[in-house]
Design a protein around this nucleic acid. Structure first.
Length: 582
RNA sequence: CGGGGCGUGGCGCAGCCUGGUAGCGCACCUGCCUUGGGCGCAGGGGGUCGGAGGUUCGAAUCCUCUCGCCCCGACCA
């Protein structure tokens, strides 16, 4: 492909709208342009990368026996009403009306639509199992889209749904998809980690996320240093901990703490470490208020709170609710002397705490000398806190390390949530009606591109892994006016293309410096420089994007050499794929 | 939704406080020159200053409303 014929509007300056590296580089490399908040154009270079990811996904899904379908982006409200999600999904669901004033939504996910398809056209257990997938544009009217493709409102997702007569078969497919996802991300050349995950709003009871490891990731994950256990911090089990050094119980005393609301403030004010504090949070769950206690240096996991309460949603109580329940302004809540009927939940780490500090449910006042057993014995203990670095693994005696990740895929066991709501059944071998067991498997295609860049870049630009690169190699003739350079470059382009190598020929009438800068920015894994010095010796220069130095290669051999390098790099990801499940 | 910030040519920005003919760098076009890491010289084109209303003799600049975008938080396959 000739660069002069392509729309690749590279930028020297970083547009002010971009914050993280993948967003900046995609804009600068001319891959995407923002059209509206969280909505982007894909330019030719961006589309090429997108197709690479899609292709890998298709090949591996097909190989796993899944069948591709294409469902509508715009879905009728009726199906969503039938599942109950028309009411539950909230403002994230983009609702639209047609000319006849009928309600539709732009699909953010497709459980309803697919279940509707299957209930209408699948009658017998003999047609199962069945795994249907699509690669399609979704829309979620995110509260806060940000970071370019990382969290767009419109995004491309591969979503797959599997249907089974029983749980065992659904579990088998879950494992199959787990392995398939490993192959997909291995082939993409990404460093990632599958972790145990919360099932979130989608529902279901078993889930893993695939997290691409990157500092800029929005998710925090912990991995055991000794065994294979890894999980999202909001989900991770925590082994029996290291109790805070026992302290002699002291009498309960009120302390004036004017204006000191946060743990940090009170801790500084009273000169006591945060781990000696009881952090009190009020949540609204269903129709009741719960008071949730965690240690001052710990962070509550709302996912775990939902599990503990068995409710689908919890929401931090409003200021007015807090005041009504505690009789004090926000910042002074505590478990002792609560007036109303409030359920009390505490994290395990608080069991046995003594000589601690908590709010006193009175303005500008805290208690010190709080002992859990003595002062709030009526509490229910549960695992409520987000895991952190140094916490004990629940499976062995190892400790956690903390990493950040970008969630690029997730697999769920859905059970019968949707099949029941939409009455999707088949007849089993005994002629009985069976509600279908379902699994659901998503990959954020566009997010995967952003994640790949977050993980593969340097100061000069993107450093594509071969499988995702828009072109395998870029050829830079140093001076087009030099006939020999130009014809050599063109010949290499043609020969490499004939060998199935994807080549970008920078035939623009630009100075070499400009071409090198753009080549680095765009990030093709290989670069062939055709210049007068080497060509004098019948050679060209070959350089890997991720390496600093180039090597001189005889012009006659470079095609063979490059073709071999490309093939080797493409195979590298595939080779590491046969890993154990979890 | 709460808090903060920004909208001036394609991109990055100055000008605004203190009202008086809209500027700079890069990019773009033409010519010359140059050709190994974003050359040089000369000439040139392009801007309803996000939008609406108001104050004023006069508004990019002051006031009101509004739209858009970004960041932090709440939220989230």
């Amino acid at each position: 492909m000739r660069q002069s014929a392509m729309l690749i509007p590279t930028l020297r300056d970083v547009p002010a709208e971009a914050e993280i590296v993948s967003h900046k580089l995609m804009l600068r490399a001319g891959m995407i342009r923002q059209v509206a908040r969280g909505i982007y154009d894909f330019l030719p270079l961006g589309v090429r990368v997108l197709r690479k990811v899609e292709r890998i996904i298709r090949e591996e899904m097909d190989r796993a026996g899944a069948q591709e379908v294409l469902l509508p982006a715009v879905c009728p409200a009726e199906l969503w009403q039938e599942s109950g999600r028309w009411e539950k999904y909230g403002k994230e669901l983009l609702r639209i009306k047609d000319r006849n004033d009928r309600d539709f939504c732009f699909g953010p996910t497709h459980e309803e639509v697919i279940t509707d398809l299957v209930r209408r056209d699948v009658r017998s257990y003999r047609e199962l199992p069945m795994n249907l997938y699509q690669i399609q544009t979704k829309f979620r009217d995110e509260v806060r889209p940000r970071f370019g493709l990382m969290r767009g409102r419109e995004f491309i997702m591969k979503d797959a749904y599997s249907f089974h007569v029983d749980r065992a078969d659904c579990d088998r497919e879950y494992d199959e998809m787990f392995r398939t996802y490993r192959r997909i991300f291995d082939r993409c050349g990404l460093a990632y980690r599958p972790v145990e995950a919360d099932t979130g709003a989608i529902g279901g009871s078993r889930s893993h996320e695939f997290q691409v490891l990157a500092e800029s990731g929005e998710d925090a994950i912990v991995s055991c240093e000794k065994c294979e256990y890894a999980a999202n911090v909001e989900k991770a089990g925590i082994g029996a901990g290291d109790p805070v050094a026992a302290v002699e119980p002291t009498p309960l005393v009120e302390v004036a703490t004017p204006g000191q609301r946060t743990i940090e403030e009170v801790s500084a004010f009273m000169k006591m470490k945060p781990h000696r504090f009881v952090k009190t949070l009020l949540y609204v769950a269903g129709d009741g208020v719960v008071m949730v206690l965690v240690r001052g240096d710990h962070v509550l996991s709302e996912a775990k709170l939902k599990d503990a309460l068995g409710t689908p949603a919890v929401e931090l109580a409003s200021e007015s609710t807090v005041e009504a329940v505690t009789g004090a302004p926000v910042g002074f809540a505590g478990p002792i002397g609560v007036k109303g009927e409030v359920r009390l939940l505490a994290d395990h780490a608080l069991a046995g705490i003594t000589a601690a500090v908590s709010g006193a449910n009175k303005a500008d006042t805290h208690f010190k000398g709080v002992s859990a057993a003595r002062d709030f014995p009526h509490v229910e203990y549960a695992d409520l806190r987000a895991a952190g670095a140094g916490d004990r693994c629940p499976r062995c005696d190892g400790r956690f390390t903390l990493q950040r990740g970008i969630e690029v895929g997730q697999v769920f066991y859905l059970g019968t949530k949707y099949s029941e709501a939409l009455r999707a059944t088949v007849l089993d071998a005994e002629g009985r009606e069976r509600v279908l067991e379902m699994g659901c498997y998503g990959i954020g295609v566009t997010r995967t591109i952003a994640a790949a860049i977050e993980q593969n870049h340097d100061d000069a630009g993107i450093v594509w892994p071969m499988p995702l690169a828009p072109f395998h190699v870029v050829i830079v003739p140093v001076n087009l006016a030099d006939e020999r350079l130009r014809t050599t470059a063109e010949r290499l382009h043609d020969e490499l293309t004939a060998r199935g190598v994807e080549v970008l020929l920078d035939d623009r009438d630009e100075r070499p410096g400009v071409k090198f800068k753009d080549a680095d920015l765009i990030g093709c894994p290989l670069r062939i420089t055709v210049g007068p010095r080497a060509l004098e010796r019948g050679a060209v220069e070959l350089k890997r994007r991720r390496e600093k130095e180039s090597t001189e290669v005889a012009a006659a051999e470079v095609v063979e050499r490059v073709a071999a390098m490309v093939a080797a790099d493409l195979a590298a990801g595939v080779r590491s794929r046969d890993l154990d499940v979890r």
